[in-house]
Design a protein around this nucleic acid. Structure first.
Lengths: 218, 218
DNA sequence: GTCTATAAACAGATAGAC
DNA sequence: GTCTATCTGTTTATAGAC
């Protein structure tokens, strides 16, 4: 647990934020420490001093995003056990809509999501930081919601994999957004386009939920 | 249309294949032309000579994969119009199973798929090559299959977006395979694990197909 | 077409002044 | 903690021999 520093190094934080921006946009390998230092308003040696090197800044960025998402999103979820099946479905639907908005629209979150997506597909070592801090608790939460909504077991292979497929749909619209944009003939992906995507995701969610509920009744 | 060369430069082809391998594994920016030349059994200046530079090799790799997929996969699809609704569903199911196998298991295709996924998420310029040659015709084909299976319009926004969500599920299991592996407690993703994933994908597909068919009957 | 040699710019890391 | 200056190695591209 990092203790709260009443006067945190503003240089350190500035480096993490610009690192997140540049790593997210161009990728880790395509971003030089000189670029980062300049954009952060400091010099190259500050990276070595604060993080031990470029790789250390990468880790610090991953920790920063993981902590941010956990404290602002995951820990604010309602207590699952107290929800009815219908309420659990509704919460799940809201989470998916929120995630779609976050991944496709939020300009503030653009750097963060792009950085995370890159790291997940590229660096396997960094997952040791991101997975336990963020992905595992987040995925467990939505599995519990699904279990509450369907009556299935939250820890079963079937539920865990199903939730990956449900979330995967949303993530793909971010990964392949340029392909989607071209195929749909959209000029850009704005609120109206996101709404069309959300409708499809919602329809799929309810179709899969219904099948899961019926499967248990047999 | 590139005309068939009876004696193609073996150096040229070797550079494309090793480029595909190294770009796929470490990424474009993390791979040096020296590495590529050495692994291909030639020297750096061969890249400039054949492709005009590193960026030219990248484009050549993208064209190579696009052409390969088109000639071996897409053009071998059965004529959609002659299929019954049930047959169209079955063909669609087979395509998704095949894609899951390709993305998660085939060791020969590993370099190619990883390269393509990287390029799609990173380079927007290269999509000008990959999209019209590969993604658009491939996606149109599966949309037509879906239309044949459900009676919906293959060119409607709803169908196009739905097929992105269907394919997106499969792609996500490749993108997030390390997260899936950890969450499932799997040591690696082999034939048994892929089968479990395919079952989930199949269930989702039929759930969504059923809803689409019912939607038309209202 | 293929090679060696080299150019010119750039990378990340660090020593040492303040 | 923050800076400048510099070290050491690597990058892509290219000139020119064969």
């Amino acid at each position: 647990m990092p203790k709260i520093d009443p006067k945190p190094s503003t240089t350190r934080e500035s480096l993490i934020k610009t690192g997140l921006m540049l790593f997210g946009n161009a990728g880790f390998d395509a971003t030089s420490t000189r670029q980062i230092a300049q954009a952060a308003g400091t010099n190259i040696s500050a990276i070595s001093y604060h993080f031990g090197g470029k790789e250390g800044l990468r880790t610090a960025c991953a920790e920063y995003v993981s902590d941010l998402v956990m404290t602002t999103v995951i820990s604010n979820l309602p207590p699952v056990k107290e929800l009815s099946a219908a309420d659990a479905s509704a919460v799940l639907e809201n989470i998916l809509s929120g995630l779609t908005n976050l991944l496709l629209l939020e300009p503030q979150a653009k750097d963060l999501t792009q950085f995370m997506l890159r790291e997940v597909t590229q660096s396997t070592e960094l997952l040791d930081v991101i997975y336990p801090k963020f992905f595992e608790p987040a995925h467990k939460s939505i599995c519990e919601l699904w279990a509450q909504a369907t009556g299935q077991d939250a820890d079963s292979s079937e539920v865990i994999l199903t939730l990956f497929s449900v979330v995967g749909q949303v993530v793909y619209f971010r990964i392949g957004q340029e392909i989607v944009r071209r195929r749909m003939g959209w000029e850009n992906i704005g609120p109206n386009e996101v709404q069309a995507i959300q409708t499809i995701i919602r329809t799929n969610l309810h179709a899969t939920l219904d099948v899961a509920r019926k499967g248990l009744m047999q």
